[in-house]
C-alpha cells in the first residue's frame, strides 16, 4: 500500500479544529442561534459611529481584527458572503415551520443588513473579514497602487506579469486538486477563482477602460448565488474555510486567488465579484448616514481619490454603490470638505 505524497497536505492539519467552541456560544432555546455573534457584529457596527475622529482609522483597524476573530473563531453560520445569501433564503423557507431554525439562519445576515440600514455600508469597511484580508494584503503593494492611480490606471507590465503568475498558480493548484479529490457542485467557488483570473487579464489590458463596467459583475455574481440557493445547491465561498471547521480545498484556492488579486488591485473581490455587496448597497441606500461633499472647501488635492481603496470617490464625488464607509477620505481630507452626516431624526 502506498502513502502517496499527494495525499499529505499540511494545510489540512492547519485548518482542522479551528473553532474555539464546539457549539455556537450562547445558544437560544437549545438551538444554535448565535446570540453572541449577533451582539458582536452589532457592536462592531456601532463602533464606526462612536469612534473618536482623531483615532478613527486605528479603531477601524482593531474593529477589522475583531471582525476576523469573530467570524473565524465564533460564527457557525453564514460562513462567507455566499453563505449570507444562501442562509437568508434558507431561513425564509423555515418561517412558519421551524421559527427557531429560521432565526438561526437569518440572524447574522439580518443583523448585517439592519446595521447597514442604520450606519451605512460600514460592514464592508469595518467588519467584513474578506475585505479586511484584502485590505491588509494590498497594503504590501500600496506604493504600486498609488503609482498606478497617479498614472491614471494605464496598462502596466508588472500588472500583466502578476496576472500571469496568478494564472499559473491557479492552474497548477487545480491540477494538484484534480489528482487527489473529486470536485462537486459545492466546490463551484473555483469558478469564481477562474473569473478572478479572467478579470485580471481584462484589467491588465486597460483597467481605466474596464474598471467601472466590470463592477456590474457583482450583480451577476449575486444572482448566480441566489439561483443556486433556490436550487438548494450549496456553493462555498472564498474564505469559507477560515470559518468552517474543516479544510475545504476549493475555498482555499479561491481565498488565495482573492489574496493574489488584492496584491494587484485593492479590494478586488469587493469591487468586481462580491455578491453580498448588492444587498449592502440596497440597505446602505436607506441609511440616514451619508458622506457629504462641500465643494467650496475642496482644493482639488485628490487625496481622497488616492486613499480610497474602492476608487469610489473622484475629486470629492462619491459613488455610493462602491463606498464601503471606511471614511479614509474624510480622515485624509486636509480641508474637511468631506463630512459624515447623520440624518437619523429626518429618517425617523
Amino acid at each position: 500500500m502506498n502513502n502517496s505524497i499527494l495525499d499529505s497536505n499540511i494545510f489540512e492539519n492547519f485548518f482542522s479544529n479551528i473553532k474555539l467552541v464546539e457549539k455556537a456560544i450562547m445558544g437560544y432555546q437549545g438551538s444554535y442561534v448565535e446570540l453572541l455573534t449577533i451582539l458582536a457584529i452589532a457592536l462592531l457596527a456601532v463602533i464606526s459611529s462612536i469612534a473618536p475622529i482623531k483615532y478613527r482609522q486605528l479603531f477601524r483597524f482593531f474593529n477589522q481584527i475583531a471582525g476576523i476573530f469573530i467570524f473565524v473563531f465564533v460564527v457557525f453560520t453564514c460562513l462567507g458572503v455566499f453563505g449570507m445569501i444562501r442562509n437568508f433564503h434558507r431561513g425564509l423557507n423555515e418561517i412558519g415551520r421551524e421559527n427557531i431554525v429560521a432565526l438561526y439562519y437569518m440572524s447574522v445576515p439580518l443583523t448585517v443588513l439592519v446595521s447597514t440600514m442604520l450606519f451605512g455600508g460600514t460592514f464592508c469597511g469595518w467588519i467584513c473579514p474578506t475585505g479586511t484580508i484584502q485590505e491588509f494584503v494590498s497594503f504590501l503593494t500600496k506604493k504600486f497602487h498609488l503609482k498606478r492611480k497617479k498614472s491614471n490606471l494605464h496598462s502596466s507590465l508588472l500588472f500583466l506579469i502578476g496576472t500571469i503568475i496568478a494564472a499559473i498558480i491557479f492552474l497548477i493548484w487545480i491540477w494538484y486538486l484534480s489528482q487527489t479529490r473529486i470536485f462537486f457542485i459545492e466546490d463551484s467557488c473555483i469558478y469564481w477563482s477562474q473569473a478572478i483570473i479572467i478579470i485580471l487579464f481584462f484589467l491588465a489590458i486597460s483597467q481605466k477602460k474596464f474598471d467601472l463596467k466590470l463592477r456590474k459583475l457583482r450583480v451577476i455574481s449575486f444572482w448566480i448565488v441566489v439561483m443556486a440557493s433556490l436550487a438548494s445547491i450549496r456553493i462555498t465561498s472564498p474564505v469559507h474555510l477560515g470559518f468552517a471547521k474543516v479544510y475545504d480545498p476549493a475555498s482555499f484556492n479561491a481565498t488565495i486567488m482573492v489574496i493574489i488579486a488584492s496584491l494587484l488591485v485593492p479590494r478586488f473581490w469587493c469591487k468586481y465579484l462580491c455578491p453580498w455587496r448588492l444587498a449592502i448597497c440596497w440597505a446602505a441606500d436607506k441609511a440616514p448616514r451619508k458622506i457629504i461633499f462641500e465643494k467650496d472647501k475642496c482644493n482639488s488635492c485628490n487625496k481622497c481619490t488616492d486613499t480610497c481603496d474602492m476608487d469610489a470617490i473622484q475629486k470629492g464625488y462619491i459613488r455610493n454603490s462602491d463606498c464601503i464607509m471606511c471614511m479614509k477620505c474624510i480622515d485624509n481630507c486636509p480641508t474637511n470638505a468631506l463630512k459624515l452626516k447623520d440624518d437619523f431624526c429626518k429618517k425617523c
Binding site: 487545480i174 484534480s178 473555483i190 469558478y191 473569473a195 463596467k213 456590474k216
Partner: peptide
C-alpha cells in the same frame, strides 16, 4: 461528482462562459 480529469472540461466551458459574460457586461 465530477471526475478529477473532467474538472478541466468544466473549467474550459465556464471560462468561455465567463469571458462572454464579461464581454456582454
Amino acid at each position: 461528482a465530477k471526475a478529477g480529469e473532467s474538472i478541466w472540461l468544466s473549467l474550459l466551458i465556464s471560462g468561455i462562459l465567463i469571458f462572454f459574460l464579461i464581454i456582454f457586461v
